[in-house]
């Protein structure tokens, strides 16, 4: 951060710091779901597809043809949001069911559902973007901001931070949290210890769906519209945040706070390089180097610690 401040003194300004938290909010929220799944030694490649499907569901349910170019259903906002979150939970549940019931690798299952949900979005909702002003205010409530001293705080950022707090607490202080670590660490040992590993896995994918649903609502607020093409790299970005945050892809090790820092680091890096005058391409390259360096450092530290 010091380096970036030296490169461009706008970096450390309150306006830019506020902007960076807002840039983190989508990937940051999705990374909570990704962390839970990676802790069980799984992976979710369909996170972005489910999120887009959920937000398009919300938006299409809430609008009417009078204000928008789609047919719409004119549902109350609260109901539409709840339906979108429910859809995301069901989608997560489908992933979990396939993984548990048919013992398929999470990578394969979510690779498949990535295509399926992307296709469903296009089939049901075409490629139409629904603009924020077409929707009731509640739909974009997550994107509203307020002043806190020199900082501009976005509601969605507060919701994201609250969710980090809640899930960090759950992982640390509930049996469910302990079981997630145990299942990711050694599923056979967990099963022999009397843990129903299938039930734990299924519940994790459902809860991940819930988080993805909330992320969908946040995304509509942050972007100011519901578009099928929002955040195309979000799957890999969420995995990047989790990995940089020190969570092992082999499961059983990692923390929520690590993921939050991981998500922030990626955004700080991107934002800092952008302000230093670099284009998109070198910024993406830098994040790639960052991932490899972070994991290499993590491995090295573990080896030194023995």
């Amino acid at each position: 951060m010091i380096v970036f401040t030296m490169l461009n003194d706008r970096f450390i300004l309150a306006t830019n710091l506020s902007l960076m938290t807002q840039q983190t909010v989508i990937v940051g929220t999705l990374a909570i779901a990704q962390t839970l799944i990676i802790l069980t030694a799984g992976i979710d490649l369909s996170i972005g597809a489910i999120m887009v499907f959920a937000q398009m569901t919300m938006a299409n349910l809430v609008v009417t043809s009078e204000v928008s170019n789609v047919a719409g259903y004119g549902w109350p906002a609260a109901l539409a949001i709840a339906a979108g979150i429910l859809i995301a939970m069901v989608a997560g549940g489908v992933n979990g069911f396939l993984i548990v019931r048919f013992e398929l690798p999470p990578f394969i299952v979510t690779l498949g559902t990535l295509s399926i949900f992307t296709a469903l979005t296009l089939i049901f909702f075409k490629a139409r973007t629904i603009q924020g002003p077409e929707m009731p205010d509640a739909m974009t409530w997550m994107g509203t901001t307020f002043k806190l001293g020199p900082f501009t705080v976005m509601t969605g950022v507060l919701v994201m931070l609250a969710m980090y707090g809640i899930f960090a607490f759950i992982l640390r202080n509930t049996a469910w949290g302990t079981h997630i670590y145990a299942v990711g660490d050694d599923p056979d040992a967990a099963e022999l210890s009397g843990i129903s590993t299938g039930r734990v896995l299924f519940s994790v994918y459902c809860v991940a769906g819930l988080i993805i649903g909330i992320a969908a609502w946040i995304t509509i607020g942050r972007v100011g519209s519901a578009s099928p093409n929002v955040a195309p790299n979000i799957n890999l970005d969420s995995i990047t945040a989790v990995v940089i945050g020190g969570t092992s892809l082999f499961g059983g090790r990692g923390t929520m706070i690590g993921t939050l820092l991981g998500a922030l680091i990626v955004v700080v890096f991107q934002n800092g390089l952008a302000l230093a005058g670099y284009d998109q391409a070198p910024r993406v390259l830098a994040v790639g180097v960052l991932v490899i360096a972070a994991v290499a450092l993590d491995q090295w530290i573990r080896k030194v610690q023995g």
């Binding site: 040992a189 022999l192 009397g194």
Partner: peptide, 23 residues
């Protein structure tokens, strides 16, 4: 039963392992 493979979870601590599945 103490299984041959021990059925302990390496990343968890001793107390967590003792109570694993019956916290």
């Amino acid at each position: 039963t103490v299984f041959q493979t021990l059925a302990v979870s390496p990343a968890l601590d001793i107390a967590e392992n003792l109570y694993l599945g019956r916290e």
